[in-house]
Write a protein that binds this DNA or RNA. Structure first.
Length: 963
DNA sequence: ACCGCCGGGTGCC
DNA sequence: ACCGCCGGGTGCC
């Protein structure tokens, strides 16, 4: 919390705990299993490094001691506390009377008073030097007028214990060890048991934790089975579970409830966890987390929500246009007709051909036209009448009211919208509530086109839903235009880049009705720019869509709470104190609280969920076959050669005990072995680690290495932002990061900057750039192409398949894009029609590839070459019913995810998966590790013993190299 | 009276 | 603060 304290202390005492200043760790401390199922060894190793972070993370801290203190000056401040309430302590070095001042604040960040100066003196030193974090609880005396007692507990790393005690002693204070930890906290007295050294947690047994977490979602559903019919404008009929989700989401948006853990008690609002009370009703949390498994239709449900719940369960009033009710390209007309004459305001579509049709929907500010009110009245009335068939019974009075609310304002507002477009208020309504109308949807680039398709598909063509694609250099930055839309769709990247150029971020000026984060777990890293950008958005309702909100680590939930503004969990300290630490320490109450918290705001169903005894969805069967491949004599020879070479190197690292520090080399060796299993031409040149040599040689070696890492197809991600590498650079210590990420680390740590992965010294000028896709020797695809055992195995499968049923489509998946290159040759030779999807493709070519593949007309491609990490979740490839996994992934979840792209809702055939594994090779060892990993994942929620994990990783390398 | 005692003023950091 | 502390007023009882 060092950085948090620093930043907060610099502020005035008025809001010492403003959430916007909450902790920004120097780099992410990554958990064992990555949410996206794309864990990389380097991330895992980040886990294992000693001294994982500068920040005093909850799970690394032990209780150093506690002491009774007093809070003084109560009468000068308005902050109130209750008996047993937790308080936070914030340094206030700018205090003109005492630079040791320590502010005491309640959960809402209101100042209660100061720590008495005698005690503040030693505390200031401890806090400023990050020796310990101090937490307070007011046990009684909370109504005192002048001073009140406070129970202070010091938490920090074991090695700081003595320093903290000494410092306190110097000022005549003695820290005691108390077993209770504080009035509302429980902590084990493990430091008395002599276990304090590295083990910072005594977790529940694995069994207990697992059960608790399973239960977390099992119990969630019983009260969420009510169904709701979507508005008329939704063309696609919803499945029962989607109607349930719609009903639940609608109730979450219209609820008047107090947020979780708040109760009304004789005129006051009381938080039962922190014992905090306020007069003002805590702000409603409208929205939540839709955590359904992929394939259950989160997108469709969300679209239904957008059009069905404008206010109080009434549909979004939409303009009707001519044309059939079938969703079709006829809508093109609507868009082009309305093209504005005002060049500044016109949301000129970004021209990419497969998306054109959708851009057509994107409207201009002028869509709310002079004739709008009347027209609208007509169309909506029609809608109202029709919907009597449905479950939404709109009585005409209510509906008229809803209508009035929008159309009446549309008239006066629309003109001003043209001229003064920057008001932030949507042109379609400023009365009643905030007048917000537009929903902002954020998603990864890979699913952007999916959203557009789905709007096309699911919204009736005779209604005009104004969807604006905020993407591309031509995007309109008019706040008026944006807030006048029904939906604005953009990517996290666009949002971050707008946010980064602080000059103007139109999306941050709009007052949204609703913000939807698709794949919302991408904001789990609080220090990532996109996370900050997302937190800065203004909205009445907030949704997170994610199939995996917390499968990674409990820590991930913190950012989600922060986004939902679920007080007090939107401030790191409170999240840590009330949830994170108790749970990781195995406190049953902590777990219970977490459960209650999640239950209140989350809907999660899996493909296997049962609703009142019936399966939620019926998916075709899915069968997995492992096909063992035997290398030819020649291949075997080469493999053994590469293996011998690698084993020598890694073996020497083991002898030196430097396996972890030479991680990049180990990875490179493993990659080579895996490439050997696929095709000889994949095995790249590589230089054996040795002396650093001349700067030129070092540079060359590093470039070699980064090229290898990036082209290997392994899931390398930046260990700082957890995203795919952007502007990748490699450090002298051979670790790869995004340039902006690592520069930020260096900037904040100055001369002390260390590599987040190995703690070696790093400097900005020593970062080596990735030279980019250089002319790659494509000899593999050239004239002297030769096959390999694995290629043969695949081809014989494909030929047999084509013989049996030429309509069957297949995904051919590899982690090595160069292997995909290789495979193109025989596919062409045998006359297969295929497409390809990999990470290097832009949005346009991607969309085209998917569209072509999904097309079922004769002559359409039957094979898609797919790079394992391309696209990410959400990609819909249901046209395929066969999957060939060419090489095993580090992470079994990544494979599952890949398979799920076709084994999902909409799949009509049984899905057959074939995994090729080379006998007696690194691949077999990887399979073993995958199994072990699966077990570990199940334990991943437990307190982590990093020592054991580190050992496990070293063992893993031994297994792989057979050392 | 260079003390003690009384009682009003006052009070975070 | 129904305290402690400070400092001015005061001085046997």
């Amino acid at each position: 919390m060092q950085s948090a304290n620093k930043s907060t202390s610099a502020r005035t005492s008025a809001h010492p705990l403003n959430p916007s200043t909450s902790a920004l760790p120097r780099y992410a401390f990554i958990d064992f299993m990555d949410v996206g199922g794309t864990v990389t060894i380097s991330q895992e190793i980040a886990n294992l490094t000693e001294d994982g972070g500068q920040e005093l993370e909850a799970e690394e801290s032990v209780q150093i001691g506690s002491i009774q203190g007093s809070v003084v000056g109560l009468r000068y401040y308005t902050g109130m506390v209750n008996k047993g309430e937790m308080v936070s302590l914030v340094r206030e070095p700018q205090n003109p009377y005492d630079r040791n001042a320590v502010v005491v604040a309640n959960v809402y960040g209101s100042q209660v008073g100061h720590i008495k100066k005698e005690l503040a003196a030693p505390m200031a030193y401890i806090m400023d030097n990050n020796l310990a974090r101090v937490e307070g609880v007011v046990p009684f005396g909370n109504t005192n007028k002048f001073t009140m007692p406070v129970h202070l507990t010091f938490w920090g790393k074991e090695e700081k214990r003595e320093a903290v005690h000494n410092q306190m002693k110097r000022y005549g204070f003695r820290l005691g060890s108390d077993l209770k930890g504080g009035a509302t906290q429980t902590s084990s007295g493990r430091d008395l048991l002599g276990l304090s050294s590295k083990i910072s947690a005594i977790p529940l047994t694995v069994e207990e934790l697992k059960n608790a977490f399973d239960k977390l979602f099992d119990d969630l559903m019983e009260d969420k089975t009510r169904e709701m019919e979507p508005a008329e404008a939704v063309f696609t009929p919803l499945l029962p579970h989607q109607k349930q989700a719609l009903s639940w989401m609608t109730s979450r948006e219209n609820n008047n409830d107090l947020p979780p853990f708040w109760e009304e008690k004789n005129g006051l609002y009381f938080n039962v966890l922190t014992n905090f009370a306020v007069k003002e009703r805590p702000e409603k949390v409208l929205g939540g987390i839709l955590a359904d498994d992929m394939g259950l239709g989160k997108t469709l449900t969300t679209i239904a929500l957008i059009v069905s719940n404008f206010h109080n369960g009434k549909p979004l009033p939409l303009e009707q246009c001519e044309g059939s009710s079938m969703p079709s390209t006829t809508r093109k007309k609507a868009g082009s007709k309305e093209k504005s004459g005002d060049p500044e305001e016109s949301g000129e579509p970004v021209g990419s051909s497969p998306l054109k049709r959708l851009h057509a929907i994107s409207a201009t500010a002028d869509t709310i036209d002079e004739d709008a009110p009347q027209k609208k009245a007509k169309t909506t009335k029609k809608t109202a009448k029709k919907s009597k068939k449905g479950a939404v019974l709109l009585d005409d009075v209510d509906f008229a009211a809803a209508l009035e609310c929008t159309s009446s304002q549309a008239v006066p507002a629309k003109k001003s919208a043209k001229k003064s477009s920057g008001t932030g208020k949507g042109p379609s309504g400023a009365g009643g509530g905030s007048g917000a109308r537009a929903t902002l949807i954020l998603c990864p680039l890979s699913v952007l086109s999916n959203w557009l398709d789905q709007f096309e598909q699911h919204i009736r063509a005779d209604v005009t839903l104004k969807v604006y694609l905020y993407y591309g250099p031509e995007r309109s930055r008019s706040v008026g235009l944006l807030s006048g839309q029904d939906v604005v769709l953009t990517t996290y990247n666009v949002l971050s880049s707008d946010f980064g150029n602080k000059a103007s971020s139109p999306l941050h000026k709009v007052n949204w009705l609703r913000v939807v984060l698709d794949e919302g777990h991408v904001i789990r890293n609080p220090s990532a720019l996109q996370s900050k950008a997302v937190l800065g958005l203004q909205s009445e309702r907030r949704w997170i869509l994610s199939g995996t909100p917390i499968q990674n680590s409990l820590k991930d939930l913190y950012m989600l709470m922060s986004f939902l503004k679920l007080k007090p969990f939107d401030v790191k300290e409170w999240w840590n104190r009330i949830i994170q630490r108790p749970v990781t320490m195995g406190d049953r109450f902590g777990l219970k609280n977490l459960q209650a918290l999640v239950k209140g705001i989350t809907l999660r169903r899996t493909k296997n969920s049962k609703v009142s005894g019936r399966a939620l969805v019926q998916l075709p069967a899915r069968r997995v076959f492992v096909q063992h491949v035997t290398l030819s004599e020649e291949e075997r020879e080469e493999y053994e050669e590469v293996k011998r070479e690698g084993r020598n190197i890694v073996g020497s690292y083991f002898q030196e005990g430097t396996v972890m520090t030479n991680y990049a080399d180990v990875l490179a060796i493993l990659v080579r072995l895996r490439q050997c299993c696929c095709h000889p031409s994949l095995v790249g040149k590589y230089t054996v680690a040795g002396d650093l040599g001349t700067p030129g040689e070092l540079r060359e070696r590093l470039i070699n290495k980064i090229t290898l890492v990036l082209n290997s197809g392994s899931d390398e991600e930046c260990a700082i932002c957890l995203e795919s590498l952007r502007q990748p650079v490699i450090t002298y210590c051979a670790h790869v990061y995004c340039r902006p990420c690592i520069c930020e680390v260096i900037r904040s740590e100055k001369e002390q900057a260390k590599c987040p992965l190995c703690r070696a010294q790093i400097k900005t000028k020593e970062l080596v750039e990735y030279p980019g896709e250089e002319v790659e020797a494509r000899s593999a695809t050239g004239e002297n192409w030769q096959s390999s055992s694995k290629v043969d195995a695949l081809m014989s499968n494909l030929l047999k398949l084509r013989n049996e049923d030429p309509t069957v489509k297949s995904l051919v998946v590899s982690q090595f894009t160069r292997f995909l290159d290789v495979l193109e040759v025989p596919l062409r030779e045998y006359g297969f029609s295929f497409t390809r999807l990999d990470g290097s493709m832009n949005q346009k070519t991607r969309a085209k590839a998917i569209q072509d593949f999904q097309d079922s007309s004769p002559g359409s491609p039957t094979i898609m070459l797919l790079s394992l990490k391309a696209g990410g979740v959400g990609l819909n490839l249901t046209a395929a019913s066969r999957v060939f996994l060419m090489d095993p992934a580090w992470n079994p979840a990544a494979e599952d995810q890949c398979v799920d792209r076709c084994h999902r809702l909409g799949q009509t055939r049984d899905v057959v998966i074939t995994k090729f594994i080379v006998k007696d090779s690194v691949e077999e060892n990887m399979v073993k590790i995958q199994k072990k990993k699966q077990e570990l994942v199940e334990k991943a929620f437990g307190g982590k013993n990093t020592q054991n994990l580190k050992q496990a990783r070293i063992d893993e390398i031994r297994t792989l190299m057979e050392i």
